[in-house]
Amino acid sequence: MKAVLWVMLVSHAAVPQKVATERVETSPGISESAMRESLARVTGALERCVPELLPDTPELDDRVSIRFTVDKEGRLKQPDLGPALKVKGLLDRQCVNEQAKDWAFPKPSTGQRVDVEWSLRVQLDRARSNALRTEARQEVKAYCDAFKKRLQKTPKAPWIAGQALVDFLRLRGVKVTSDDQEGMKTADLTQARLTSYGRRWVEAMQQVLPPNWRDIVLSTGEELGDPNICPELASWQPNWDG
């Protein structure tokens, strides 16, 4: 479940963080200068693949390595299995492979495929990442506060997680339609006072069945470095049969 939730919750940089080429190595067929020129046209797009929330570790490596193969037509070679690019480092792999679909290069002079290793450096904005992490934690805690209030009234009712989400969103300026049993039916998040990270876990809750809501909130807490962010929700035992 957590792996699936991470795909839904992963957030890329809304404000680009600089990504710069450090080194390019190619096998015979395309010169380094020609490859650098081609890669310069797509480097900027990789900035959106920098996670907004950087890993909370003092020794964060800013180096990225991308390996790929160019076919004899100058296109990215697609393997039978797995992604076209092998990405090592901070950039989100799925995002990079999505960006690479339209990459084009000179046709190799040898008429044979060319192997490329592209080394980059990412300029990391720790201050912005830490500020977002703090604000995102506050959002999850606000939802947990709303849940605790509902829990005190009807502790076994399975719908209180949805009702708490309605309460939380209304406090954030969201227009919500709901009913007493199912909680939220529709929500207009366009004017919501939410971080981009908070918006994503709320949207994730909208896409799954109620029994999975708890997993989304608790997984979000873990991603934010606070696995005990909502103990009442973690220990909650609703009566799904009632």
Rank of each mutant, 00 (worst) to 15 (best):
S219A: 15
P106Y: 06
E135Q: 13
Q191F: 12
E135C: 05
W159V: 01
P58T: 03
S27Y: 08
A146S: 09
F68T: 05
D61H: 13
A84M: 09
L46V: 09
V42F: 05
Q123P: 06
C49V: 10
V114G: 02
E37I: 01
W103H: 06
W103M: 11
L5G: 05
T220H: 00
L189T: 10
Q94D: 10
L76S: 04
E37H: 06
E135R: 04
R150L: 12
A14Q: 13
D179I: 00
L5T: 11
V87Q: 07
P106N: 04
L233R: 01
L169Y: 04
A157L: 10
R48L: 11
T43E: 15
T110K: 14
T57G: 06
V208Y: 02
T57K: 13
W236H: 08
E203K: 10
S109K: 14
K141R: 15
G29F: 00
L85Q: 02
F147P: 00
G198P: 03
R199Q: 12
P231R: 09
G74E: 02
V42R: 05
S27I: 03
E182W: 09
Q112K: 15
A84C: 10
R121S: 14
Y197W: 10
G242I: 07
Q163N: 11
E139T: 08
T110I: 07
L151M: 12
F105R: 00
Q78S: 14
L76C: 10
V24G: 00
T220Q: 06
D71T: 03
R126F: 04
S219L: 05
H12T: 14
A104Q: 15
